[in-house]
Each structure stands twice: as C-alpha cells, then as structure tokens.
Design a protein around this nucleic acid. Sequence first.
DNA 1: ATTATACTCTAATAAAACAGTAGAGTATCG
DNA 2: CGATACTCTACTGTTTTATTAGAGTATAAT
Lengths: 131, 131
Amino acid sequence: MKLSKKGEYALKAMIELARAYKKGPVRISSIAEKEGIPKKFLERILMDLKKVGILKSSRGAGGGYELAKAPKEISFADVIRVTSGPLAPLRCVSKYAHINCPHEKSCGLKKVMQDVRNAVATVLEREKFGK
Amino acid sequence: MKLSKKGEYALKAMIELARAYKKGPVRISSIAEKEGIPKKFLERILMDLKKVGILKSSRGAGGGYELAKAPKEISFADVIRVTSGPLAPLRCVSKYAHINCPHEKSCGLKKVMQDVRNAVATVLEREKFGK
DNA sequence: ATTATACTCTAATAAAACAGTAGAGTATCG
DNA sequence: CGATACTCTACTGTTTTATTAGAGTATAAT
Ligand code: FES
Ligand code: FES
C-alpha cells in the first residue's frame, strides 16, 4: 500500500511549483536541489505531468516549469494517478482503471477494498495544491 | 497504492478459513483450488500467518490449517500487515513501521499522507473475519 | 511397522516494477 | 551566436514480486 518514490517526488515538486504560481517558471534543477530529488529523474516526472496538462513549460534561458492551471484546481489524487497509477488496492475496485474479476459476485474482498479505495480517494481528491 | 497478490491471496484464504472455523482443519490444496491460488505460493503465505499467531496447523492425514483465534479477533489489517507490509503510503507516517524523515517539520506531504494512512487503517482495522 | 497424507523449510528463479542515468537533440533568450 | 534549459529515447542496475523445486518431518490409519 505504499507510494512510489516517483509519486513522492512528484508531489513535492508540485508543492514547490504551487508556491511559485504566477511568479514565472521554475527551473528543474532548482526544484531538484530544494527537495533533494535526482535531477534526471525529476525531468521525466515533470514531463509526465506536463503531458496530462497539469504543468506547462518554457524552454531556453529564463524557462522552466509552472502550473498549467490554478493550484486549487489540482488535487493530490490527480498527481498520484499520473505518477504512481490507480489509487485502488485492486483493479476491480478502481474507478478510472477498472478491470473485472471472474468471481466478483461471491468475492469477500471486493466490498472492503471498495471502501479502502473510497477512503483514500476522498482524502486525496479533497486535498488541493492551493485554496 | 496497490495490494500485492500475496496480500490478496492471504485475505481470500483467511475468508475461507473463517468460514470453516471450529469445523476442523482445512487442507492447503483445498483452499488453493477453491480460490485459484498457486498451491506452493499459498503454503508460504499460510506459514507466515502461522508464524505470527493468526493461524495454527496440524500435520498428517486429516491435517490442515485453521484459525488460531476467533474470526472476530482478526482484522484485515492484521493480515495485510503480515503479508504486504505497512498500510501507510510513507514510512514516516506508519504507526508500526515508523521511520523519521529528515525535513519532517517543513514537509507538505506528511499531513495528507497521515490522513491517508489513517483512513486506510480505519477501514481495515474495523473489518474482521467474523462478528 | 509401513504407507499415505499433509504440512515445513530453504533455496532458487523468472519476470516485472522501480529508481535512476546517459547523452544527443531542440527551442528560446539576450 | 552561445548559453540556458527543457525534450526525448534508450539504457542500466537494483529490488520486489510471484512463483517453483525439492527434500524433510510429523501424524494417522492400516
Ligand atoms: S478480487 Fe476482484 S472481485 Fe474479488
Ligand atoms: S516525506 Fe516524510 S516527512 Fe515528508
């Protein structure tokens, strides 16, 4: 039930970027240093977040990354889904990555796992990067 | 944030064993067949659960596994901790496997992850294998 | 006692996921 | 142009996951 390093780094970077919202782009290396994240790894993470429209970037001198929308429009859940996959403990109870199980009807796990996924999603969807 | 196969199998086996509580031991192969779990893998899982006192076993003909205590005394959380590790997304917010982070004081992640771990623990500790 | 039954234990392994790195390429600013 | 900083593909090493092999031990029934 643990969060990957990638997810952890992504959230930390997002917090940093939210802090700099509307203050111009932030360099990857600046975030990497402040948060103690390997730079090359962070590059890939931020690219992923850009690809789904959470971040935008500008190149060249004075360039860097910044939020693509208001911090209050971005949830922890959004970031984790992109960087560490579904929140649900089992695919059969995942909302956005659902897959059917063979014996769903008689499965004693499904209900509880559904509750877990909902509990997690509630916390992570409520939590935004700004208010 | 996903549950390992090992954890999933363990829970399914526990449900099966709870059903047979006070009805004598159940063979590994019987559980493996019913739940579609590789037998050899299940052996190891049940051994783990025995080691921590959740299950007990008897050998030889007529032998098998059974719960070591009343189903209502065993929670999903107990089983998952043994077979898939801590419930917490990060070690620094884990109750039973806690490790300190360097910058805990200024970390923007800790509080939310604490909430996640609590939400998960609440669901999984409430859910028992019998009532 | 012998045999069949069923758990016990250590070790090994194949594949996947995770964490991180290398390096050449491209856009932009001054 | 030259420095800056993101872009993109591919590669690598490590760890974890999921599983299997096989020899060993205890028990019950015959
Ligand atoms: S594990 Fe998916 S329905 Fe039981
Ligand atoms: S990640 Fe542990 S305190 Fe921030």
